[in-house]
Design a protein around this nucleic acid. Structure first.
Lengths: 342, 342
DNA sequence: CTGAAAGCGCTTACAG
DNA sequence: CTGAAAGCGCTTACAG
């Protein structure tokens, strides 16, 4: 493969001129620019990104860090980010911080970032002070999705509002006996949504003057499998809720399945609502509060690109993407209020 | 941040010595190595990857290319690959080749690869000759997952065997009226599994002397949503199969849902089987032929690392990961053979 | 065992 | 508008 020196030689100019011509800088005569372009084409010249990076100090790659990578929400974000970056001649390098255990994650290190990336996009990772300081020390712009980092651009949804929408949908249908699934252990401090959604559930119930009995607020690791198990006791007992709100659609799917196995009809005997509008929610007829994950990924990438650009904005943007209730077949009035709605 | 020159200065040695000491090369006295390590630690020195790359010619990053990124299979692969690479001090850069339309993808270009990566892992992308030649010309090792590239290391499952297992499971249960969903348009030549699975379905049915009526082999774009729609006509007609095999679990889930909506009991009125053991297959009780996607990703990364290592293997490895029938609740003997199995 | 020097392939003031 | 030269921060023979 040819280098800038080859191009300079056959075009009969200096490497400096080739560099300028190829990058579209001014102060190159149209004629020599044309010539250089021609020769570069001929030789299939592509600048070495590593040499360019060393000389310019910019890598044109951004770190995408996430606590999990294989889950729908994260994979969707990554896909959107990668496309937006590539459209602007940047690239995404991945850091999956997932640990063996659900309740911890790997730390962000200098090794991952230093001279390797121009910026970082964090996907719902609640950064600890040391990590924020590291990113600062390295002078890297950071944009956060999902879990905000104080003082940095943020893209996400209003988790509290989303949860409130879900609960109020049930209340409007006439439900008063409502349970919750998606509580996460205290030490899972590295993602924020679980905390906000739970807090909002409790607050909304309280606002409505609705009691939440002991044992109706269930823990889960946010997978469908676990949720299916975690709600089994509550749903098989005699004193069960008429509706269960899940902090995510994947959990809602697990709940719905367990209900069916126990012989409960959804929604007649149990209403189920989630948050996300997960890939399978539509086909499964799940009522949910939709968030547009692709839009969030794209917006975050655009913000980072902007921070990397000519005139970065002074104040950090805060983009709260709206959510929307999507009513499908997993919710209905409770049987007591409207007997046998089917 | 400090450079190798800083470390050399305060350690009182040359940069060459620092370089050797830090990389663990021999021909450095234990004493000076210790000293260099100390100073490097003190100064929080981390070598600039871009400078190292330019000097050494190796980037320690590998390109991961995929026709989609947000789907379960691909996201799971990416996660496994990234972890394996990072454990060996390498990194993954992503290329999502997804196009606007389902039936095409973006091409792999020199821009993506040249001097940017040391090798490439392709996730089920059936490469065209131009792309293979490009990778060759750039001297990059390539390992393929899912769709083999002739002469290159390959990791995947035996798609034909997997499909045969699914079909024979149904036949063993007594099914004779079996349909198929997952045919893809002719021009979708960039992924291989659809072709192999269809061919194997047809071949197995033929082996068993079973007819496949016109209209019982259905097209779909391999999403659950589409599959749910695509099978609706067949399942609502009077002359319908007793079992449907889906080329993927996601489609199987769509089929199962449509069947239920039409008032058909699964498995009593319709057996459904898929391939994958998708994230939600267990909780949904779907019978499937399981493949271990994480193992495939990890193995592919290991093979690439090996190709990048000291003594790369002469012959390209071919790793066919076994698949396994997992019988759950979506399949049973057809009603005619064993009436009302529930 | 250690250092001086060339080289990796670009970009970027600085002259002209 | 164009070129010569320094510099980005490492690695790698080559001497010693």
């Amino acid at each position: 493969m040819s280098t800038i020196t080859d191009v300079a030689r056959v075009a009969g100019v200096s490497v400096a001129t080739v560099s300028r011509a190829l990058r579209g800088l001014d102060r190159v005569s149209p004629a020599t620019r044309r010539r250089v372009l021609e020769v570069a084409e001929e030789l299939h010249y592509v600048a070495s990104p590593t040499a360019t990076s060393l000389a310019s100090g910019r890598t044109r790659v951004v770190a995408v860090v996430a606590p999990f990578l294989s889950r729908w929400y994260f994979a969707t974000l990554v896909s959107a980010i990668e496309k937006e970056l590539r459209a602007h001649d940047h690239h995404a390098i991945l850091f999956d911080l997932e640990d063996e255990t659900f309740d911890s994650r790997l730390p962000l290190t200098q090794n991952m970032l230093w001279k390797r990336v121009d910026g970082v996009i964090s996907l719902d990772v609640a950064m600890v002070p040391d990590e924020v300081e590291l990113v600062d020390r390295l002078g890297l712009p950071l944009v956060a999705i999902g879990s905000p980092v104080p003082g940095r651009p943020f893209v996400g949804i209003d988790d509290r509002a989303a949860m409130r929408t879900a609960v109020e949908h049930l209340v409007a249908l006439g439900h008063e006996r409502i349970g919750y699934i998606g509580v996460v252990p205290q030490n899972v401090a590295h993602v924020r949504a679980p905390q906000d959604r739970l807090a909002s559930f409790l607050a909304t119930m309280d606002d409505r003057g609705l009691e939440v009995p002991d044992g109706w607020v269930l823990g889960s690791d946010w997978t469908a499998d676990a949720a299916a198990r975690d709600c089994a006791d509550l749903l098989s007992g005699p004193d069960r809720p008429t509706a269960l709100v899940a902090a995510s659609d994947e959990m809602a799917i697990g709940v719905r399945e367990t209900a069916r196995r126990l012989g409960l009809d959804v929604p007649r005997d149990l209403s189920v609502v989630g948050i996300d509008d997960f890939m399978l929610s539509e086909v499964l007829g799940l009522t949910t509060v939709r968030q547009d994950v692709t839009a969030q990924g794209r917006a975050a990438a655009a913000l980072l690109l902007q921070a990397l650009g000519e005139d970065p904005p002074a104040a950090p943007a805060e983009l709260v993407v709206p959510t929307e209730l999507v009513v499908r077949e997993s919710t209905a009035a409770p049987a007591a209020v409207a007997p046998t709605p089917l």
